[in-house]
């Protein structure tokens, strides 16, 4: 095997820094899937940047051998957008959890979908804030009780996939962490698909939501393939059981690229408009 092939094996995308996630956490599998997906896409580690916010899953970038950016809570998509627009040559993936992405970062989620910059957003959804010890997130069931919500939130569950569709995401998929190969396939497709690709990964929290171990029995492949009709995709997703995994929507909206002048001028060329 030559050097290039070695460099592009999944193992080459792992850093030597070990995760702090609880043993049993779904995020380990997602990490493994990231390495496989990068290997499938075939970009070198230094050509990839994984950007995250704050939370258990947001620790992911450091565990990869690609470049990483571990920023502030809820702003991964903003940082990733800036990076991708400034450096369109890089493959940029934003990742994080449901609290980071749908609560504190909710506004950026909407506008990242709208803007349709060519990046991939991966949310490891476990319906709970893990790093702050088990508070309800936007995807937590209304009757789930915790210290902060002793009687449950009573709030309607946020539906990221449908929201993403409505806001304009160009690729929408659901995956399950228990299937790292399947996640890797979807991630690789998401990265390759132009525009804003959104992948929601059901990733159990064994510490605060041990019952999520049962997701293994609940998940099943999406009965039909991806559509390019957002309305059809939204109807399907709204009426499914929340556990069908696969690529659900593949759009063809034009990718956002801000104007960059063709003729490159020097700063001194801009002085003219000020001259008396």
């Amino acid at each position: 095997m030559n050097d290039m092939a070695v460099a592009l094996q999944p193992a080459a995308y792992k850093s030597d820094y070990k995760p702090i996630w609880c043993p049993g956490c779904g995020d380990y599998s997602v990490l493994s899937a990231f390495t496989k997906a990068f290997s499938m896409v075939g970009r070198k580690p230094e050509e990839i940047v994984v950007v995250s916010g704050i939370g258990c899953s947001s620790r992911l970038p450091a565990y990869l051998s690609s470049y990483g950016f571990h920023g502030v809570h809820g702003r991964a998509l903003a940082a990733a957008t800036g990076l991708k627009l400034a450096r369109p040559d890089l493959t940029v993936v934003a990742s994080g959890g449901d609290g980071d992405g749908y609560s504190i970062g909710g506004n950026h989620f909407l506008h990242a979908c709208r803007r349709n910059v060519d990046l991939t957003y991966v949310v490891m959804d476990n319906h709970v804030y893990g790093m702050t010890k088990g508070q309800p997130s936007p995807t937590t069931e209304p009757d789930w009780q915790s210290k902060l919500s002793p009687t449950g939130t009573g709030l309607r569950v946020f539906h990221p996939l449908v929201v993403a569709l409505a806001a304009g995401a160009n690729f929408v998929a659901r995956a399950f962490s228990g299937d790292p190969n399947g996640v890797a396939d979807i991630l690789a497709e998401a990265i390759r698909h132009p525009g804003f690709s959104f992948v929601e990964i059901l990733s159990p929290c064994v510490t605060f939501r041990p019952e999520q171990r049962n997701w293994k029995q609940a998940v099943h492949p999406a009965p039909v393939g991806a559509t390019d009709d957002p309305a059809k995709a939204a109807r399907r997703i709204l009426s499914d059981d929340g556990f069908n995994v696969g690529i659900l929507y593949r759009g063809n909206r034009p990718v956002y690229r801000p104007p960059v002048g063709k003729a490159k001028k020097q700063p001194a060329d801009l002085e003219k408009e000020f001259e008396v």
């Binding site: 043993p23 049993g24 956490c25 779904g26 380990y28 599998s29 493994s32 962490s177 228990g178 299937d179 790292p180 190969n181 399947g182 159990p204 064994v206 171990r213 293994k216």
Partner: peptide, 12 residues
Amino acid sequence: MEGPETADFTEL
């Protein structure tokens, strides 16, 4: 989901 001899992370 994975190779038949590959253990599942959630077993830990």
